[in-house]
Design a protein around this nucleic acid. Structure first.
Length: 803
DNA sequence: AGCACGCCGACT
DNA sequence: GTCGGCGTGCTC
């Protein structure tokens, strides 16, 4: 194997193929497939990161072949499965293979090459001399240097006084700790202890500990802390030969709190049936996809846990995916309580280092169960026995930037590769999945009953048009207020949902009709009382709330569209004694804030939990007997064909938060569209009927699941560039594709300008389109050079929204 | 991406 | 004449 095929870390169309490199003799024995290496690339001395994707004995490339410079990690970081998966992913998501490889790995492996300036010989100009000081080499960070300095440096390089070198920076460093262990036997230590000076207290403490723990290897910092001694005592002890110090890899474990063990629960007949079916596939290496449709509170989680247990019992591993927001401590404790140290967690709350450590635990085979959000679908588990995807309809499973993969599709691919079942679970499956179950592509498993046959909560629809007619300007109907008061009196808890954060959606001048907009985006600014700022939810722009109209200097500015901040204020007025916790992006930004707020609510330190849709999932608080939805219309009014589906799912999910233990629950849904299908059916929580009625609408309008969809977006600095490009693409596609598909648009995207870039899009609806893949690849190739002019094309297969 | 080459206008 | 602006092409 003289040559290696290397995927270079340069995400462009022209470099999206393996490059051939020589295997130098000194690396020949160590190089393995999937290893991360450093290679020279380009004319200069530029060095970059690459991944070995193949070996060969001959070269096809005509031209000089360079040798691989070095190996980055001692072991391969990408296995055979991941190499194949990355190729498939690159093709189906129209993205670069290297981008796919990098998304599968922890972010610390996104190495960046650093330029370093090295002194060679001769006197440097005074200005540069000052820059170097005593150092022989410094980092060449052009951004931190002035133009003058850069010029001087380039001159010095040409004159041979300096040289530019490249260092590929690797952040993926395992954390190392020093362990201490007794080196002598107990009798010898005892003898030393007897002879040691009476005032050498620290040494005595250490010796006593060593005598008590003859075998233990303890982390040095822990030993220092427990004994109250310092590092020099241990150093001296090592020099005297009492102890040995060794450096080992420390894996940061983010959940070190002791977790209460829990045991499998008794299953009801439906649950048992589901577990039996899944177990059957596990034992027969059958890559079947199951749709587990269970009403809220039907015990899906217990089915998951017991199915995973079956996989472990068969000597295999288990992967469980959950929406990011549902990774609550409750969920974590439940899984950890069942499988203990075998569990690795992957979620956004971990630091980069912690994620890397968890990844390594999985890679080394120390963790057999992985629980995590979207990106955990790439966890380097081997010999997977089951993949579970909870709340499979959740939109957070779709990655919204490149590679725009669907977690569900990746999970199914891995199911095929590992010959294991994939379980998609939901109370409100996506219509796509439910339709596939009807066509027997998936096997449908139903959990129609709640645990202990508990009744579903009673749902009341409150017609807000009547409330308005009664001249009520509050965001609360009288019936909802009465219901909350009743819970307060009974010392029960309430969950209130309003799907809009901030104080109010926009600020309007009643004199001239002016609405304050973001200077960078085509969107109105949201009023936030906290910090007294107007905020853009798209680009993060902020400015103080104006006192007078910026347009006419009038004083009649009014806020419209209630957000959670305002509701919190209203609650304090209507129910001054109620203790309210508000949970939205603004109150949960800090690390751990989410958990803290939920823990406070769970322990009864508040009466009302008010939040955006982040409170709709997975919460299980037995004392919650009332759920109020303040405005069910926000998601219904979206200009998206999935508006009904999203509304029904959200209402059903949030309703499921009420009455989960022995107390009956009730739900109040306030709406201006009480007759809408989505809201009427959420009342009875009848998913099957919703499915049937919504399928009819989708069929009539040629929408998914009857059609596949793909979105092509052109973005550019100038509006005419974006528009011009998308029209050219539309023309090309009309010629290149068969006439059996439908192209919607081109149109400006719902928010045409975001962060000073213009977005235009078109949507292709198709059933079977043989030319699609090649036509879209042609589009990408054609417009690849346009990136130089700030024009970008993006292709999104099965977008979650058409906006 | 990032770098070099190369072709044009404006300076010591 | 040469310095440096940016448009273009290539990287094993």
């Amino acid at each position: 194997m003289q040559f290696a095929q290397v995927l270079v870390d340069v995400p462009t169309m022209q470099t999206d193929k393996p490059f051939t490199y020589q295997v130098p003799a000194q690396l020949a024995g160590d190089l393995k497939l999937g290893m991360r290496v450093i290679v020279p690339f380009g004319r200069g001395k530029r060095k970059i990161q690459g991944f070995i994707v193949g070996f060969s004995d001959h070269v096809d490339f005509k031209g000089p072949v360079k040798p691989i410079s070095a190996i980055i990690d001692p072991n391969p970081v990408v296995n055979d499965e991941m190499l194949k998966l990355s190729a498939w992913l690159a093709q189906t998501t129209f993205s670069f293979r290297i981008s796919c490889v990098l998304t599968m790995l922890p972010s610390v492996m996104r190495a960046k090459a650093k330029k370093v300036l090295q002194r060679t010989d001769g006197e440097l100009p005074a200005a540069l001399q000052a820059l170097f000081g005593d150092h022989e080499q410094i980092e060449f960070d052009q951004a931190a240097l002035s133009d003058e300095q850069t010029k001087l440096i380039l001159k010095a390089v040409q004159a041979g006084q300096l040289s530019v070198d490249y260092v590929v920076k690797n952040h993926a460093k395992p954390k190392l700790i020093t362990k201490v262990q007794a080196h002598l036997g107990q009798p010898q230590l005892q003898k030393i202890l007897d002879q040691v000076a009476k005032n050498a207290v620290a040494q005595q403490k250490l010796l006593r500990w060593l005598i008590d723990h003859p075998k233990d290897a303890i982390a040095q910092p822990t030993l220092i802390k427990t004994l109250g001694i310092n590092a020099s005592t241990i150093k001296t002890a090592a020099q005297k030969g009492w102890v040995t110090q060794s450096t080992v890899e420390a894996l940061r474990n983010p959940y070190q709190k002791p977790i209460q063990k829990n045991y499998p629960l008794q299953l009801n007949a439906d649950q048992q049936n589901a577990v039996d079916h899944i177990a059957d596939s596990i034992h027969n290496d059958n890559a079947k996809v199951y749709l587990l449709e269970g009403v809220t509170g039907s015990g899906k989680t217990e089915v998951y846990l017991q199915a995973m247990q079956k996989a472990l019992a068969a000597g295999k591993t288990a992967l469980m995916l959950v929406p990011e927001i549902a990774l609550t401590p409750q969920m974590v404790n439940r899984v950890k309580g069942r499988f203990g140290n075998l569990v690795a967690m992957l979620h956004s709350g971990l630091s980069m280092g912690e994620k890397y450590d968890e990844w390594r635990r999985i890679d080394q085979g120390d963790a057999k169960v992985v629980v995590g959000a979207r990106s955990a679908v790439f966890a380097p588990l081997q010999n997977i026995g089951i993949i579970i995807m909870d709340e499979e309809h959740d939109s957070s499973y779709k990655q919204e930037d490149t590679p725009r993969y669907s977690t569900r599709e990746v999970a199914k691919w891995r199911g095929q590769y590992n010959h294991c079942p994939v379980v998609l679970g939901s109370a409100t499956p996506s219509l796509e999945s439910r339709a596939r179950a009807s066509k027997h592509v998936y096997e449908l498993l139903m959990l129609p009953h709640r645990i202990n046959n508990q009744a579903l909560p009673a749902v009341h629809i409150v017609d807000m048009r009547n409330e308005m007619a009664n001249n009520v300007t509050s965001d609360f109907s009288q019936s909802l207020v009465d219901a909350i008061k009743l819970r307060l009196a009974r010392k029960e808890q309430t969950v209130l949902m309003l799907n809009r954060r901030g104080y109010s959606a926009f600020l309007l001048c009643r004199d001239c009709g002016f609405v304050l907009k973001c200077p960078n985006c085509d969107i109105s600014l949201t009023v936030h009382l906290k910090g007294h700022q107007m905020q853009c939810h798209y680009c993060g722009y902020e400015q103080p709330i104006p006192n007078v109209c910026p347009n006419c200097q009038g004083h009649h500015l009014r806020t419209f569209g209630t957000g959670t901040e305002k509701v919190e204020q209203e609650l304090n007025q209507i129910l001054p004694d109620a203790r309210v916790i508000r949970m939205d992006v603004d109150t949960t930004k800090r690390k751990g804030a989410h958990e803290k707020l939920l823990a406070r609510f769970g322990s009864g330190q508040a009466d009302i939990l008010l939040g955006t849709q982040m409170i709709a999932k997975g919460l299980d608080f037995p004392n919650v007997t009332l759920v109020g939805v303040l405005n069910a219309d926000t998601s219904l009014e979206l200009p998206d064909f999935r508006a009904n589906e999203k509304t029904f799912q959200l209402l059903t999910q949030v309703s499921g938060r009420a009455g989960r233990a022995d107390k009956a629950g009730s739900v109040y849904i306030q709406t201006f569209n009480p007759d809408s299908q989505a809201i009427q059916l959420a009342k009875t929580q009848d998913y099957e009927q919703f499915y049937r009625s919504e399928m009819r609408l989708r069929h009539l309008a040629n929408y998914p699941p009857y059609f596949f969809t793909i979105r092509v977006t052109a973005s550019a600095t100038y509006e005419n560039q974006a528009a011009g490009t998308i029209y050219q693409i539309a023309n090309f596609l009309n010629g290149a594709l068969t006439n059996r598909n439908i192209i919607l648009g081109p149109t400006p995207s719902a928010i045409t300008r975001v962060n000073n870039k213009y977005y235009y899009q078109l949507i292709i609806k198709y059933k079977h389109e043989p030319n699609l893949q090649s036509a879209l690849e042609t589009v990408l190739n054609k417009y690849q050079s346009a990136t130089r002019h700030g024009i970008y094309i993006s292709i999104d297969p099965e977008p979650v929204s058409f906006m």
